[in-house]
């Protein structure tokens, strides 16, 4: 959380997760389709095939003097250092897990990396909401299987989403925004 020179409070939210899991798609959907959030410009640092190289970024406002600086990370394994940089100063995490069975290991690796980077503040000082994305896949993993895979108990809010259609994305975003506001502003 930081205050800018106009006295506005900035809260940083980061979409995290394995490569091609739907992080950028979810952010683009929020940017393009969701009313009621005032949005600034969409900034993307990506390669020629539109894969995220460093991050995507959109500032959003739910009104008043509170702004959300919303980032995604580059999911490919080789961008580990960039992900660590993007995580600096984060107030909340939206973890986007991929429901494809062939992404089982990538989900685990990404989640373990997140836990390694943030340590025990994850879930305690830095709230996390998990999106189980691509729920429209016919061969998707079950919800329970994914939660077991990630070692998630009942304390983390879970949303089943289809980012390409926007299903569940807004609710997941509202949930992490609310968790962060509760944690940072109403201590």
């Amino acid at each position: 959380m930081r205050k800018d020179d106009k006295g506005r409070i900035h809260l940083k939210l980061v979409f995290y997760g394995p490569s091609l899991g739907g992080k950028t798609t979810a952010l683009r959907w929020l940017y393009g389709k969701v009313e009621g959030l005032q949005k600034g410009e969409f900034t993307a640092i990506e390669d020629e095939t539109n894969r995220t190289l460093f991050f995507d970024y959109v500032p959003m406002s739910a009104g008043g003097r509170v702004l959300f600086d919303v980032f995604t990370v580059a999911g490919q394994k080789r961008h580990r250092h960039q992900r660590k940089v993007v995580l600096q100063g984060t107030d909340g995490i939206l973890f986007v897990a991929d429901s494809s069975p062939d992404q089982r290991e990538e989900n685990v690796e990404s989640f373990e990396e997140l836990k390694l980077f943030l340590g025990d503040v994850l879930g305690r000082d830095i709230p996390i909401v998990v999106m189980l994305n691509k729920r429209d896949l016919p061969n998707r993993m079950s919800r329970d299987e994914m939660l077991d895979l990630l070692g998630l108990g009942g304390n983390v809010p879970i949303y089943e989403t289809i980012a390409v259609q926007g299903v569940g994305v807004k609710r997941a975003f509202q949930a992490i925004a609310r968790e962060v506001i509760l944690k940072r502003m109403y201590k």
Binding site: G63, G64, V66, Q174, A177, R178, I181, L182
Partner: peptide
């Protein structure tokens, strides 16, 4: 209140805090 939990408008007695 916004769905994110930010106060928008309120009509409260003096002993109730809007932020709360």
């Amino acid at each position: 209140v916004s769905v994110e939990g930010l106060p928008i408008v309120s009509a409260l007695p003096t002993d109730v805090d809007e932020a709360k």
